[in-house]
């Protein structure tokens, strides 16, 4: 800061916050050393990968510069079917259903249930452990278990049979996941149960951090449980809710929902989604000489989906920020 007479002149560096004290400068080598490897990692595996993906999207099946991949993607969107025989309209429609089931229904319910569970329910610890089991055991184990439940010899088919439901021969033979009309909806039912329980972990943590004194004083003033939930607890954890909603918007087209595992990697019987579609390509790339020609198409498809998702995320963020209140407790 330069002082001329009684006027102080603030330099450009100071205004921008780029002025550093000697002590701060002495710590630069340490700081740059500790962030060096993570910065190289992110530069390579985020920025370079994204640029490379962008460049690949302008190549054809033999790797030459071309708009062929984009033409294929646009044709696939217009006609509803890609050059590999997948129905893109079905994939996008199913991704939307998955998103609604997981985030609109499942997550919304878990916001309320986790409040009741954390603040008003006896035995909440036991419930919490049970609800987190699907998340803890992971996709392969949980889906492995659920596939047995939906199989022809599983509990669900047995229950339906004992209730006298006349099941089609394919269900009796291959189970509910082996029949076009039931497979996707069985996965959705399982997803709904899982997402209702899964949201509890993060929500419970947020609710537990609200001091009990807030609720106690509200109760003394005659506040009931419903008002407590909607007018005290939820506004208090709104930053957590809005952040989770932003993350949810980001996963619009990437959620696979175990479709790959449920369908044994084939997407059969309508068990598909955009996430499944993209993962399937990644697996194809790992098989030598079978996937090289799809780099361009996959990258163009990904970029196209990103362009579709970006406005949704940014509008969503703006809207959520409008309702954001800074709550301190």
């Amino acid at each position: 800061m330069e002082v001329k007479g009684d006027k102080m002149k603030v330099t450009y560096k100071e205004r921008k916050g780029w002025h550093y004290s000697k002590l701060e400068k002495s710590k630069f080598p340490f700081v740059y050393l500790i962030v060096a490897l993570p910065v190289i990692q992110i530069a390579l595996f985020f920025f370079y990968v994204n640029l490379s993906s962008f460049a690949l999207s302008f190549t054809n099946s033999v790797g030459e510069w071309s708009l062929e991949s984009y033409k294929k993607v646009i044709n696939a969107f217009v006609s509803g079917e890609d050059h590999l025989g997948f129905s893109l309209h079905e994939l996008i429609g199913k991704s939307m259903i998955i998103w609604v089931v997981n985030h609109v229904i499942g997550f919304s319910i878990s916001i309320l249930t986790s409040f009741i569970l954390t603040k008003h329910m006896i035995g909440s610890k036991i419930f919490r452990i049970i609800y987190h089991i699907p998340g803890i055991v992971g996709g392969v184990v949980f889906i492995g278990v659920m596939k047995e439940m939906f199989s022809s010899s599983g509990v669900v088919v047995s229950m339906l049979e004992s209730l006298g439901v006349d099941l089609p021969i394919n269900i009796r033979k291959y189970g509910l996941l082996g029949y076009e009309q039931t497979a996707f909806w069985c996965v959705m039912a399982e997803q709904l149960i899982r997402s209702m329980a899964g949201g509890n972990m993060i929500m419970a943590g947020a609710y537990m951090r609200i001091p009990n004194e807030i609720f106690e004083s509200a109760q003394l003033e005659g506040c009931g449980i419903v008002r407590e939930a909607f007018q005290i607890a939820m506004p208090c954890i709104w930053p957590t809710i809005s952040t989770m909603l932003i993350f949810a918007l980001c996963s619009f087209f990437t959620a696979d929902c175990g479709m790959y595992l449920y369908s044994d990697g084939t997407g059969k019987f309508g068990m598909t989604s955009v996430g499944y579609y993209l993962y399937r390509f990644n697996v194809a790339l790992t098989i030598a000489s079978s996937g090289d020609h799809i780099y361009g198409y996959v990258s163009a498809f990904g970029l196209f989906m990103t362009l579709l998702t970006l406005p949704v995320v940014f509008i969503g963020r703006k809207l959520l920020a409008k309702f954001q209140e800074n709550v301190e407790f």
Partner: peptide
């Protein structure tokens, strides 16, 4: 917070 879809191919290639 920025959703980038479908970079798996480029990431695998790298």
């Amino acid at each position: 917070i920025v959703p980038i879809v479908g970079t798996g191919a480029a990431s695998y290639k790298l």
